[in-house]
Every structure is written in structure tokens, then in C-alpha cells.
Amino acid sequence: MNKEDIINSYDFKNIKTEKEAAEVQLKLNEFIEIDKKLKIEKIKKVAGVDLAYWKKEDVEYAVCCIVVIDYSTKEVVEKVEYVGEIKFPYIPGCLAFRELSLVLEAVKKLNLDPDLYVFDGNGYLHPRHMGIATHAGIYLNKPTIGVAKSYYKIADTDFVEPENSEGAYTDIVIDKEVYGRALRTQKNVKPIFISIGNYIDLETSTKIINKLLNKQSHIPIPTRLADIETHKMRTLYR
């Protein structure tokens, strides 16, 4: 089986349990490419991806919002959203089985073709290296980065707080392997947690995220804007 056959063989609707989801994640591991460096000078458009949830008459829904910005000017060049029903339960480490189908449908609505996707969530920083950013990167066949606002503790390993200065970071090392990075984007703010999604390395990911920051928030511009859109859309649809 080639990559496409393996990917297409997994029908998310038929995956119901944590065990089934974990088996899929482990099989997809062979498609993670950590050391493929994305050339920063070739980045023109960056997409931020975020989702928001709500319940209506005991049915759970979510909206996926994608905001694409110009990497140089940071101006918004496109916005799309997709609303769908959520049928997979909340299980830590299995977020993609709740969100990926909505993400893929939202991507279909884009007129532009982003060079990079930044997800509000983890990527390689995951027990099976298959957070939403990595999982989505394989399906999208695009470079992806995961940026989480809170730390997902793995193997009972805590992260080391970076120095209290802008740009300070510490690597998150679990079983002698670097899973991700804690980055303090501004002085006196909580760190964010960067991990590669796919088709990119951690150093390049860190440089890109640092370029996507401003003083309005400690999280990157694309995911902050996507988060704002999810709140707007949730209010509209719920």
C-alpha cells in the first residue's frame, strides 16, 4: 500500500474507541517527516486553524475557522469556516478524530493555497507523535506547525520554564527525544508550546512562529485570528 491508499483506508466514521484511534496514529507515524526544511523565504501565505464547540439539544457541534494571512504584511487575505456535528468522544490524545474531518472540509472552501498551516494544538508533542497538526499535515500534504496554549504532559514529564524574556525557550525532552519547545513570546506572559506538525523541523518552526507574533497577544497572529472567528461563528450558529 502507498501513502494515499493507507490514508484513504481509514474511515473516521468507523473509528469509535481510543484503542482504534491509537492504532491508526501509530500506523501513520511512518509518514512523519521531521527533517524536511521549509524554506522561509518561499512562504507567502500562512493559514491559522482553530475550532470551537457547542451543544444543541444534546448534539455536539463544532466550527472550524481558517484565517489566511500574508506572511510579509500580516494582512488577512482569506477567511473560511465549516460547521459540522461531532460524533467522536473527547479523549486526550485523539483530537484529530473529532476535528480533522471539519478541517479538511474547511480547507476545500479556500480559494488560496497556503504554504503553511498553523494549528491551535499540538503536533509531534504527543504520546504517539500524532497531534492534530501532524495528523492534518499528512492528510493535507502541507507543512504544519502545532502551537498549544497549555502543556500536554507526556510520560509524567514536566517542561522547564524558559527565562522570563522575549524569545526565551526550553526544549521538551522525553526519553532523550525532543518532542517540542516551550517558548516565551513576551516577558511576563505564559509560554506557548511549539511542535512540528509535518514537513518541517523545530528550528524553522520556531523562527516562523517568532515572525508571526505581535504585541496584541502571546500567541501567533494566524491562530489568534482564527480563534476570534470561531467565537463569532459559534455565536452565530448556536
Rank of each mutant, 00 (worst) to 15 (best):
5 D>Y: 12
8 N>G: 11
9 S>E: 04
9 S>N: 12
15 I>T: 04
16 K>V: 05
18 E>N: 11
21 A>H: 10
24 V>P: 02
33 E>N: 15
33 E>T: 15
36 K>V: 14
36 K>M: 12
37 K>E: 14
37 K>Y: 09
39 K>R: 14
39 K>I: 15
46 V>D: 02
46 V>T: 05
50 D>Y: 04
57 E>R: 07
58 D>F: 11
62 A>G: 12
64 C>T: 10
69 I>N: 09
69 I>W: 00
70 D>R: 10
79 K>A: 07
79 K>Y: 11
87 K>M: 08
95 L>S: 07
95 L>E: 00
97 F>G: 06
99 E>L: 04
100 L>H: 11
107 V>Q: 03
107 V>E: 10
109 K>E: 12
111 N>Q: 13
112 L>I: 09
115 D>G: 08
118 V>I: 10
118 V>L: 08
123 G>P: 00
123 G>L: 01
127 P>T: 00
130 M>R: 01
132 I>M: 09
136 A>I: 06
149 K>F: 05
149 K>P: 02
154 I>F: 04
157 T>C: 14
159 F>T: 02
166 E>W: 09
171 D>Y: 13
171 D>K: 13
173 V>F: 06
181 R>I: 02
185 T>N: 01
193 F>H: 01
199 Y>A: 07
201 D>E: 05
202 L>K: 01
214 N>E: 10
215 K>R: 15
215 K>F: 13
216 Q>H: 15
219 I>R: 08
231 H>D: 15
232 K>W: 12
